[in-house]
């Protein structure tokens, strides 16, 4: 449904998107995840035909985003990051105007306005000027506009930014529902959001893809990167440190003492669980153990790690080029 091949976008000497390639199948919600400035909005703007790429290709539903831009625009619903709207217009007027721009007839428009305002909980606000609506309401107007022509592909740039927690939950549920009928691509810099709403994710940093796959695949990938075991014992710090080093399968060790208790954080290799060994160690040495738990690696750590690595690489690349 969405096909991106070797896409590059430069602004002067700045490379915002660097040789990006990916494909998205029909249906479902795709998360486009990356830290701020990773090139998410740039990619999305190319897909929504707002600006052309410097090189490479992007196509939606088989139509090229540059040479067949009108065909693409008819099939895409796009919600830009800041949800720009005309404040002086009423919700109904605005949706009517947008429907007309998309060539919808009178009957089709009024049916579509009814449908989308129901869907986005806007029915009570259709005759209010947009300028008087709250940020969350305006977000819904933007979303209603994006879906009113039943687009095959829905592109949402940071759709929950600036919303309150209830609105965020409502919007996420709506997006999930939309994913049943449309192909939804949603960008975010919040991992948690992508985990909750998306079936698949592409993680980008510094304009390049660092990881992609279904949410399950991504979780599996970093769960093999090992976890952490945390223990708190009453003993001297040196004793704990030297004792812990005798254990097998340890990648890194962090020891900190406070109020007579020593807190030990052990990073383990692979899937290894060293809790039992650690318990035996402390009983044999006569330490008092008051806490022992294992933390699985989380997606957050993975996300931070891969994006930081990518930023580092990008810096190296630019210093080599310079």
């Amino acid at each position: 449904m969405i096909r991106v091949g070797n896409l590059t976008k430069r602004y002067g000497s700045l490379v915002a998107v660097d040789d990006l390639s990916f494909e998205v199948e029909r249906g479902g919600v795709l998360g486009f995840l990356g830290p701020n400035g990773a090139g998410k909005t740039t990619t999305i703007r190319i897909l929504s035909c707002y600006h052309p790429a410097s090189s490479g290709s992007a196509s939606i539903a088989g139509f090229d985003c540059y040479s067949q831009s009108m065909e693409v625009r008819r099939r895409v619903g796009y919600l830009p990051e800041s949800t720009p709207l005309y404040p002086e217009m009423r919700v109904r007027e605005y949706l009517n105007f947008r429907g007309k721009l998309r060539g919808m007839g009178w009957g089709e428009r009024s049916a579509a306005i009814k449908r989308v305002t129901d869907r986005c909980w806007l029915t009570a606000f259709v005759d209010r000027p947009i300028g008087q609506l709250s940020k969350g309401m305006r977000q819904r107007v933007g979303l209603a506009d994006a879906i009113m022509h039943e687009p095959q592909v829905l592109i949402l740039d940071e759709p929950t930014i600036g919303l309150d927690p209830t609105q965020i939950r409502e919007t996420r549920n709506l997006i999930k529902e939309l994913g049943e009928h449309h192909t939804v691509m949603l960008s975010s810099h919040i991992l948690h959001e992508v985990e909750q709403t998306c079936d698949r994710a592409i993680i980008i940093a510094s304009g390049r893809i660092v990881a992609s796959g279904s949410m399950q695949e991504l979780r599996n990938r970093f769960s093999t990167q090992g976890g952490r075991v945390i223990a708190e014992v009453r003993a001297s710090q040196n004793e704990v440190e030297s004792g812990a080093k005798t254990l097998d399968g340890i990648e890194a060790l962090d020891v900190a003492a406070s109020n007579g208790w020593v807190r030990l954080a052990v990073k383990t290799l692979g899937d290894r669980d060293i809790r039992e060994d650690l318990f035996k160690l402390s009983t044999s040495r006569g330490w008092t153990l008051r806490e022992l738990r294992r933390e699985g690696a989380n997606l957050e750590d993975f996300f931070i790690q891969v994006t930081a690595e990518q930023a580092q690489k990008a810096k190296q690349r630019s210093s080599i080029n310079a």
Binding site: Y50, R73, P80, S82, P84, L85, R98, L101, G103, D145
Partner: peptide, 14 residues
Amino acid sequence: RNGTIETLMTAPVT
């Protein structure tokens, strides 16, 4: 300034 140029110029209008 409002950014509405983005929604306008991504609608099917030349």
